[in-house]
């Protein structure tokens, strides 16, 4: 357990200190401001939580893309830095190091991301006349945003064992728009399924946010919201377990 906590702590520190984490998320935020600064007020008055979720939906166009890409080098860099040989000679298990890295780097990247969501909601809230909309963010972040981010983070760390980071970044960006934003009636997509990381199901189930996106006002039971969260977390965990099993097997064959 102490190796896991140690890895978590120091991976957290290292990721939080990366200038590119702050710069990239800042850049995504500027893009968001540029894209939504000309949009007018909503056509009709919505409940504040619904409005907050709409803003979160808008921010989710870009912010999680930067998040996924910023995590993509975390596992791979052990090789490029040349730290693997030392780490492999230590008694700490691969699992403790891998999961510690996952949680440490993910939580660290969530901090500027949360800040960016907050700034965007504050800015948009002021523009539409309700600066207090940001008060919904903590709950929305935990229930709607975080499960998808944990899912994305797991794949960003795992996939780069096999894919070069730049290629992963391109594929991930494509996946994000295809899997979250393309309407299912246009082409087969993961959008509007329980595996949508943008959080359509939790938003609909827990906040009755159903008038935009996939559900056309149809109410979604809490169980489906929970199922979506569980499925996202389990799929992410599966990706990491697959990586762990692969590396263990490879180490045994060395």
């Amino acid at each position: 357990m102490s190796a896991f906590l140690g890895a978590l702590r120091y991976e957290f520190c290292m990721q939080l200190r990366r200038r590119s984490v702050w710069v990239s998320i800042g850049f995504a935020l500027v893009l968001l401001f540029a894209l939504f600064s000309r949009s007018g007020p909503p056509e009709r008055v919505l409940p504040p939580a619904d409005t907050a979720l709409r803003l979160v939906g808008n921010a989710s166009f870009f912010l999680p893309v930067a998040f996924g890409i910023l995590l993509a080098d975390r596992w791979r860099r052990e090789r490029s830095l040349g730290t693997l040989e030392l780490l492999d000679s230590l008694p700490a298990s691969l699992g403790a190091r891998l999961w510690g890295k996952y949680f440490g780097a993910t939580i660290a990247t969530m901090i500027p991301l949360l800040l960016a969501f907050a700034l965007f909601m504050l800015y948009s809230g002021v523009r539409i006349g309700d600066a207090t909309l940001v008060r919904f963010l903590p709950l929305i972040f935990v229930v709607v945003i975080a499960p998808g981010l944990l899912f994305v983070a797991a794949f960003s760390i795992a996939c780069t064992e096999w894919l070069p980071v730049p290629l992963y970044a391109v594929l991930f960006t494509g996946y994000w728009f295809w899997g979250n934003l393309v309407p299912p009636e246009r082409m087969p997509t993961l959008n509007c399924t329980l595996l949508t990381p943008i959080g359509e199901y939790p938003a609909a189930a827990f906040f009755q946010h159903t008038d935009v996106g996939c559900f056309n006002g149809q109410s979604i039971p809490i169980a489906l919201g929970l199922a979506s969260i569980a499925l996202l977390l389990a799929t992410g965990a599966l990706a990491l377990f697959a990586l762990q099993a692969y590396i263990t097997r490879r180490a045994a064959a060395r």
Partner: peptide, 15 residues
């Protein structure tokens, strides 16, 4: 019980 110094020791530049 091992102390190991590899030939090419990589370190974390951010620590």
């Amino acid at each position: 019980i091992l102390g190991y110094l590899p030939q090419e020791l990589g370190v974390y530049p951010d620590l």
